[in-house]
Design a protein around this nucleic acid. Structure first.
Lengths: 273, 273
DNA sequence: CTGTTTTATTGATTTAAATCAATAAAACGG
DNA sequence: CCGTTTTATTGATTTAAATCAATAAAACAG
């Protein structure tokens, strides 16, 4: 458990003005409800002491605030405890590409350019809704992995999962049309959110909280928000979905799967061997 | 060193009809010239005995032959020793998306659906030119990583590198036009090939062997071969490149970098911390 | 070397999605 | 609650790239 106002906290707050440290008592790693899906899932209970020690603290990031920008010095890596974060890159022409949707249990912030203390994030990170983050100092990651090989294996496995998602997004932007690509994205997020909810404290539903704007969707799959709107409206008219007031309802799951060429199995977390 | 016609060899040959086992003497891991860039780069000399033992054998895959298809049972993971391989996915509509260009020293074949012996590759693999592969039995990967944490760290780092490339391809298909996207791809491959050549036995040059067809390029960045041709011809007319007879020459490196928004640093291999 | 297949090239036409533009509806801050 | 900002919606027009089509050139197999 990090001491309130630790050195690491102060460094982090200087650089990450949008963060607020959570009030004690913070969630402890050993009782963490999302642990079984997170980076430390393979690590036995009795070892979680050092996980906790490794962790800096929990922070709160308000809705629509930036956690870090591309190029910012990368002090920390993060696990999303609660909320919804997007990782993105801004191009020279001002356009934005969403690289990843981060959901609770997901690990992020380890992709950097350069090495050591000067390493900078390769992308930006933005909260779509108020989010709670567990921060870990980046510089200790390697020694932690050497102490706990399971951590490196977990990181490799999570990397593989992220890679699969990234490749599916690439297939979407590269070889699917707007309708197919949108159908896939909606189902992917629907399944990922629901999988995470089912992880204990909620039951199956055809509806999820969905905080993306149409521009966010467009920036994820390479379309303008205008065109995303037209396709979503058409899908609503066809009775496939309902998408309003930050809530997405899947009405024609089978039809959408057909359109988007989506199979839930392919986005399941991966295991090495 | 694998015994000729080992069990593993026989299993592999039944499933991978295009493979030919290399004649002895095979390259040994301990003297492998590409080791410093490959998965085992962090592993000390004295430990490479088991790497060699872990390895099944070296195989030859002829040009334009398929190593495996999506869904094939994944017996092996591979390091490309020499040649050029693409990983791809075929969509329901018959279109193809190239997911990754595999160059010597790169590791591939670990992305699978399912677990254990029934796991199937998530993508297909095709040699663009005659290629030499080192094969490792997939089922032993986890125990090997547990024995050698450095291997898991290496895998995580390579995964991160692949992820960066995949994200750049996503940015290309999502938010760049044909000209920008092609400029980026040509430079990426030019730098990756040259980096690998410089790794010992060749000097800087403005020209590389480039076995991609215009259709391969199009399938990598989501364009038709017709449109790729028009853009390449235009770039040739402008004196930026020369691209013919399976050879690519970069004549206007600065201008191409500007067009493609390419920075060599961003495709450099990543280190965790 | 020679017929066959694959790949490259170029023009004419169509189309999916972008752009431009103008409200309407929601969300937000005080 | 109220003015302001962000997001959604819809129509009209343009455009980058796809599609269709027809050689030319290169690569390949025997």
């Amino acid at each position: 458990m990090a001491a309130p106002q630790s050195d690491e906290f102060c460094i982090l707050m200087n650089k990450r003005p949008n963060l607020q440290q959570c009030a004690d008592p913070q969630t402890e790693c050993i009782t963490c409800p999302i642990r079984k899906m997170a980076l430390f899932r393979g690590i036995p209970e009795e070892e979680l002491g050092w996980t906790q020690e490794f962790r800096d603290a929990q922070y709160l990031l308000p809705a629509r605030k930036t956690l870090y920008r591309e190029g910012d010095i990368a002090h920390s890596i993060y696990t999303l405890f609660d909320g919804w974060v997007i990782l993105f890159k801004i191009l020279d022409n001002g356009k934005r590409q969403v690289l990843r949707f981060v959901l609770p249990g997901d690990f992020f912030g380890f992709q950097v350019n350069g090495t050591g203390a000067a390493a900078g994030y390769t992308h930006g990170a933005l909260a779509l809704v108020e989010s709670t983050l567990c921060a870990f100092p980046r510089t200790r990651l390697r020694s932690m992995m050497e102490k706990q090989p399971q951590l490196a294996i977990g990181l490799a496995e999570m990397g593989m999962h992220d890679m699969t998602l990234c490749q599916h997004h690439l297939i979407g932007t590269g070889r699917k049309n707007a309708r197919e690509s949108i159908a896939f994205l909606l189902l992917e997020l629907f399944y990922r959110v629901r999988m995470q909810m089912l992880n204990g404290f909620d039951e199956a539903t055809d509806s999820i909280i969905f905080p993306l704007t149409q521009e966010d969707i467009g920036d994820a799959i390479g379309l303008t928000s205008v065109h995303v709107n037209r396709v979503l409206k058409e899908m609503e008219r066809e009775g496939l979905i309902r998408c309003q007031r930050k809530r997405l309802t899947i009405l024609g799951e089978e039809a959408l799967m057909e359109i988007g060429q989506f199979d839930p199995g392919m986005i399941a977390p991966k295991e090495l061997v």
